[in-house]
Amino acid sequence: MSPRLDAVLRDTITAAQANALVPLYKLPAAVRRRLAGAPIQIDGNTLDPDVQLLLRIENLLPRTTKTDAATARARFRNLCKLIPGTPAEVQRVTDLTVRGAAGQLGARLYVPAGAGRGLLVFFHGGGWVVGDLDTHDALCRAIAVDAGLRVLSVDYRLAPEAPAPTGAEDAIAAFTWAVDHAEDLGVDPALVAVGGDSAGGNLAAVVAQQTVRRDLPQPALQVLLYPSLDLVARRPSRDLFSDGFILTEEDIIWYRDHYTPDSTLRPDPIVSPLRAEDLTGLPPTYLSTAGFDPLRDEGLEYAEALTAAGNPLTHAHHPSLPHGHANLRTVPGKVQEAHAHLADHLRAALH
């Protein structure tokens, strides 16, 4: 990439400008390819060029060191403004409270036109430290509309103020609340699923395991989007994609240390669901992994473990995409194909 092109991009993009990147994706594909730079190939996979363009621009934005949680949360909120696109038209959006492990939690219910009787209880990503209902609003709207089901997004408590296993216990309590109040939410209690992206995928996997172990109402489906599954072991994908692909090695360590300051808790399945000794009896799983994700290998390992334990599994592997791609829905091509695959599966499984 030439310095002149860098300057053009830097002058037209600011982290605070909502939807600032959307006009770029209206340029001809050949122009976007040139702006993205030479193809990136690692471990036999080629990064999607439209995602590469986004990463190129993200790398031009001012960097903020993760010195504290408040700074990290502010930067994450700004980044989430870059490319949400036009929010999907949802018939009704309601802010409400749900039961947490120690009191009420904020939540947001999305009801699309023509919604069926299914519900996805969703936990946002962000390393258990950043993220909130607003950072994942566009994603939840898109899932609700495209899958034709209600989505309940839960604002579980964040670390470091609330370290592990607080987030996990909040997630378990919120999911069981949703089943208990299914009729009030307009859904069938037998069609309540649990899901999340990244750290939220970790919480969803914990909910699926712990509801079985604690003899609680169980999800109809668990939806794990490039989840964090093991806070102990380090796998080759952590080295292959340690920097430059949205989630960095520095991020992983920083989030882990904030969520589990007590390192003795990290091998416990309440925070590392991949380390559970018994995976039998879990609900059907939709597991999404990405080729350019430092968490790729633990996702692949969990897919194998779920299958070996006899659990129904749909594994959607996206070799050209990075961690976090579900939040990049307006990026054309492979990102939108991944979203469509997820929505189609949810529609089929929960209708």
Rank of each mutant, 00 (worst) to 15 (best):
L60P: 08
R75Q: 12
D68R: 02
D50I: 04
T64I: 10
L79A: 13
K66P: 13
A70S: 10
N78R: 14
T65N: 06
T46F: 02
A38P: 15
P62A: 06
I42Y: 04
R75G: 10
L79R: 14
V90H: 05
N59Q: 15
V93F: 07
E89Q: 10
V51E: 08
L60N: 01
L54N: 06
Q41L: 04
A74S: 08
R99H: 12
D48G: 03
I57V: 15
N59V: 00
L61I: 09
R75A: 12
T71Q: 14
I42M: 09
L53C: 07
D48C: 09
T65M: 05
E89C: 07
T97R: 00
L60I: 05
L53F: 07
I83S: 15
Q41N: 13
A70C: 03
A38D: 14
L47R: 05
I83C: 15
T67Y: 00
V51C: 12
V93I: 15
A36G: 11
R56F: 03
A70Q: 14
A69S: 11
T86G: 04
T67S: 08
Q91C: 13
T71F: 03
K66N: 13
D50N: 12
I42V: 15
A38G: 10
D43N: 15
R99Q: 14
R75K: 02
R92F: 00
L61P: 03
G44N: 01
T94C: 08
L60E: 01
D50R: 06
G44A: 02
R73H: 09
E89V: 14
D68G: 01
L82F: 11
R92Y: 01
P84F: 14
R99G: 04
R63F: 11
L61A: 05
E89H: 09
V98T: 05
V93K: 10
L47K: 05
T67I: 08
L54W: 12
L79I: 14
R63V: 02
Q41S: 15
T97K: 06
L53K: 07
T64N: 07
A72L: 03
T65A: 10
T97S: 06
P39Y: 00
T46I: 06
T71H: 07
P62F: 01
K81R: 15
C80K: 15
N59C: 08
Q91R: 13
A72K: 00
L35Y: 03
R75E: 09
A38W: 00
K81F: 06
D48P: 10
G44C: 03
R63I: 10
G44S: 00
L54H: 11
P49E: 01
L53R: 03
A69C: 04
I40Q: 09
L61Q: 05
T71D: 13
P62M: 04
A38V: 15
T94A: 11
D43R: 09
